[in-house]
Design a protein around this nucleic acid. Structure first.
Length: 873
RNA sequence: GCGCGAGUGGCGGAAUGGCAGACGCGCUAGACUUAGGAUCUAGUGUAGCAAUACGUAAGGGUUCAAGUCCCUUCUCGCGCACCA
């Protein structure tokens, strides 16, 4: 009796053997076609659970499949290891963030990712918090500084009081910090470092069209985030002050005759200047209140709670000379457009609500049929014909738009303008555990870059304590802080802000191409060989932040001639999250520690093995969908693996698949013709070829349907059981009753070759998904030529298209589209014969009851549909 | 509110416009047993003894033929949301 399937034992054995062999090393400049397979690298939080494992499994299957298909695969892994949790852990445990991080990395790498059976090239491991990585983050940021893309300015910024740091716009969600939605961010005026991502707004938007390998919804999210609006600037002159003009941005210059007021943002510099004495007290109070409002409160305000105060002054509409009042209201944002908005209540929902509340005139200037509708119940925002608009009356509003902007340009009262929602990327963080910004502040010279030969600016460890109070510990490290200016050698201070960790992760895929370079971040020729990434796999939560930043950095580095590609990720697979029932909430929720519904990796691997875990996460749902973790389902995969194991053991024990030398009995080229096989053998051979085709297609980038790939393997295994155990005569199943079930004793030599061929192919099809079991049986069954001949470097099986389909088919007979019968016919039966066959069928005849059919549709090799008249539907 | 996406057995999910429910979980029955998170065999959409009828959120349409394409409605999920 063969040994039972013991995953733990074989998994450890092969993980060690693979590591020793180096079969997963990527080779720079190899002649094989390259395939760069990337998975979003983790933050080393300390413990991965089954929810995390899904993404690594998917990416690993793709990598292994491509490798077997003959590609030179780069499949690297690393750690996004700067960031707040390490610093918070340091405060809590009185441990340096670096020590905490290193400990976590070691555990996650050696006890979790390796034990999952991943095929990473660990020689290229990167850790963003190590000096040999952040050295080059600093190098790159200085290059961006030289290119004018890094600048410092004082601006109102989002401050998270809990993180004690500023945040990028992208990291503010509903007015709260992305890390804790319960903490509203505050507005602070601070001098901060920004990256000029807006210089690339147009490219980032236009090139989305090139990304055909991305899901439409991800592209759409980026498009909306960039938020391009075409419109115009229009200048309104202040009444009685001909030298003072207020410029508004509008996407609807065609509605300018309907302006009945103008709004300034509370922060707008002209508010103070223009407010009349009479209104001053009220306006100042309003501005004060608006300033104190958090972003959250401003966002939460709906139309009914619109607020505002007239400042007493008026402006002249450049188109018709009307004077309209100026208001201050916080629905105008200083950070968008010009901070001033023209109010057109008749054709803007927001303005309509504002006018209703404050009793401002509503003047209709666009009407559906060119006739004014009179009193409006709501804003009319559809296209229409111009009315009440002087010389433009009667024009379609879209035509008027262009002409009116032209007119404004000629009269110096406006010009076309494109406005983006995207803002520059605020990268300063007032925290210790991040990459130091390599600049030095000198009173005389300003902000001076640290010379390249003095990089990296290392994070100091001396004199640093983590108390969680009093701000950034870097500000207290006197030895580190006080330096001489590189330019004038005078006294100067280091920048104490560190970089947003999204900087680290927006170039790590480039570092993988040349991870051990100690002269440069990467050699250009290596990056040009590997880039772009052929398949990126990761969570949808990065649809905007990380992916947009990475695209920007790639484009900026392209313009600096440091890389050649301009889009980093050709294909993106956004895998769905893993969920599980949570005792805490009583609902099915995303698997996470805080929800108390995690399934750990270690226990599961010990009991059922990594292969079963991999198979279940692949099988239970298509990769882009949500997946509910089910212990029973996972055990089901363990049973399937056991079924494969027992079958192959049985075949080996009974000498059914090995020849006298202990090698597979199948001819080396496989079995590519029916030969003398009987029907049962033909069916199995066909099933083998069909399975190879189906799994090959399912694993291809066009599909990535791992669930059906596994289902097809299961079908083949079921077929093999039938073929192997079912005796000819009684058909009573596994060697009838009693005793050890056994392999059919009457196997012919040809059938043994067939079985042998089946096993070699089945194992290779399973290899990407269940790498350990496949490897073990590959060697046991003698398919391996030596102990070093790994299944993962073997060739992916091929199929003969003609053998993927049977030579007879079941022809479906329909009457008016309903199935009335089926009949077996040879494949390729001529249409007229199929037609005659259908018309002579008893059931069809009885339905016809003597009538002539109106029509007979023949779908070759599928069905015949007889259409009978007058029977309705 | 706007924009995407999805609704298929008890459950997860399959189906280039051509036999709905592959494959698995669960369940039922049988066999076997060195009792193992066993294994093997058969069955399992609903109603019915059956023939058969009905079935892919609801309604309509296109088509010889619709889960699949079109329109309307409903439900759920996701994203964005004072962006002028």
């Amino acid at each position: 009796m063969a040994a039972p399937y013991n995953p733990q034992q074989i998994e450890e054995k092969w993980q060690a053997a693979w590591e020793k062999s180096g079969i997963y090393k990527a080779r720079d400049f190899d002649k094989r076609p390259k395939f760069y397979s990337l998975v979003m690298f983790p933050y080393p939080s300390g413990d991965l659970h089954m929810g995390h494992m899904r993404v690594y499994t998917i990416s690993d299957v793709i990598s292994r499949n491509r490798r077997m298909l003959g590609y030179n695969v780069l499949n690297p892994m690393g750690w996004d290891s700067f960031g707040l949790p390490a610093e918070n852990a340091a405060i809590k445990h009185k441990l340096h963030p670096g020590a905490w991080t290193d400990k976590n990395i070691k555990y996650m790498r050696d006890e979790q990712l390796k034990k999952l059976g991943t095929s990473y090239d660990w020689d290229r491991e990167v850790t963003t918090s190590s000096a040999n990585y952040y050295h080059w983050t600093q190098w790159l940021i200085l290059k961006l500084h030289e290119a004018g893309l890094l600048y410092r300015k004082s601006a109102p910024v989002n401050w998270c009081p809990q993180c004690e740091t500023v945040l990028a716009n992208e990291q503010v969600e509903n007015g709260a910090c992305w890390r804790h939605p319960e903490t509203p961010v505050e507005q602070k005026q601070m001098s901060q470092w920004f990256l000029k991502i807006t210089a690339y707004s147009d490219q980032l938007l236009d090139d989305l069209d090139k990304l055909t390998g991305w899901a439409e919804r991800v592209r759409l999210m980026q498009k909306n985030w960039i938020g391009k609006s075409e419109g115009a600037e229009l200048n309104f002159t202040v009444e009685d002050k001909p030298n003072v003009r207020i410029t508004v941005f509008t996407t609807r210059p065609d509605t300018v005759f309907g302006v009945s007021y103008l709004v300034l943002a509370p922060e707008h510099p002209l508010v103070k200047e223009l407010t009349t004495d009479k209104q001053r007290a009220e306006v100042e109070k309003y501005v004060e209140v608006a300033k104190r409002k958090t972003e959250l409160e401003r966002v939460a305000a709906d139309e009914k709670s619109k607020t505002g105060v007239p400042i007493g002054a008026h402006v002249i509409n450049p188109f018709n000379g009307d004077a309209v009042p100026i208001w201050v209201s916080d629905y105008a944002l200083m950070s968008y457009g010009t901070g001033a908005v023209m109010g057109v209540p008749a054709h803007d929902e927001r303005d309509f609500a504002f006018a209703k509340k404050f009793n401002l005139p509503i003047k209709e200037v666009i009407a559906p049929e060119g006739k004014a509708q009179g009193e409006l119940k709501e804003a009319y925002i559809e296209p229409g014909i111009m009315v009440n608009s002087g010389q433009w009356n009667g024009l379609p509003n879209e035509d008027a738009k262009k002409k009116m902007v032209d007119w404004a340009a000629q009269n110096l009262s406006g010009k076309p303008r494109t406005q983006f929602r995207l803002r520059d990327w605020l990268i300063s963080r007032q925290r210790y555990w991040g990459c130091p910004i390599p600049l030095i502040h000198c009173e005389k010279c300003g902000a001076v870059p640290v010379p390249y030969d003095q990089l990296p600016v290392k994070l100091p460890t001396e004199g640093i304590t983590f108390t969680g109070q009093g701000g950034n510990p870097l500000g207290k490290a006197a030895d580190w802080l006080n330096v001489k200016c590189p330019k004038c050698a005078g006294d100067a201070r280091r920048e104490t802000d560190t970089m947003d960790t999204f900087i680290d992760s927006s170039w790590y895929y480039l570092r993988y191409c040349d991870a051990n370079n100690d002269k440069l971040p990467f050699a250009k020729d290596k990056v040009d060989y590997w880039m772009p990434v052929d398949q990126y796999v990761g969570g949808i939560e990065h649809a905007i932040l990380h992916l947009l930043y990475s695209r920007f950095i790639t484009k900026a580095l392209r313009d600096l001639k440091l890389v050649s590609c301009d889009e980093p990720f050709s294909n993106l697979l956004s895998q769905g999250m893993v969920t599980k029932y949570s005792q805490q909430s009583g609902r099915i929720e995303k698997m996470s520690k805080s929800r108390g519904n995690v399934v750990g990796t270690t226990d599961f691997f010990k009991k059922f093995g990594a292969d079963a875990a991999r198979l279940f996460t692949l099988f239970a749902a298509p990769p882009e969908q949500e997946l509910e973790w089910s212990e029973e389902g996972a055990i089901g995969q363990f049973r399937f693996l056991g079924r494969v194991w027992r079958l192959v053991q049985d075949l080996i024990d009974s000498k059914a698949i090995l020849n006298a030398e202990g090698k597979p009995a199948a001819p080396p080229e496989g079995i590519r013709a029916y030969g003398n096989l009987d029907q049962r053998g033909k069916t199995l051979l066909q099933s083998i070829h069909a399975t190879v085709k189906a799994v090959t297609d399912d694993l291809s980038p066009q599909r990535y349907q791992f669930n059906t790939a596994i289902a097809r393997c299961m079908e083949l295994v079921n077929g093999l059981y039938k073929f192997t155990y079912e005796s000819d005569s009684d058909g009573n199943g596994k060697e009838s009753s009693g005793g050890e079930p056994g392999v059919r004793s009457n196997l012919t030599q040809q059938e043994k070759e067939l079985l042998s061929f089946a096993v070699c192919n089945l194992l290779r099809l399973l290899a990407p998904m269940a790498p350990h079991l496949a490897e073990e049986l590959w060697h046991q069954s003698g398919c391996a030529r030596s102990a070093e001949d790994f299944i993962h470097t073997s060739e992916w099986p091929t199929y003969v298209p003609e053998l993927t389909v049977s030579d007879t088919i079941e022809l479906v007979l329909q009457v008016n589209g309903k199935v009335v019968g089926k009949t077996h016919v040879p494949r390729g039966l001529p249409d007229d014969e199929a037609r005659n066959l259908a018309l002579s069928d008893e059931k069809v005849k009885s339905k016809l009851s003597g009538q002539e059919p109106t029509k007979v549709i023949v779908v070759p090799n599928r069905l015949v549909n007889v259409v009978i008249p007058g029977q309705g539907k």
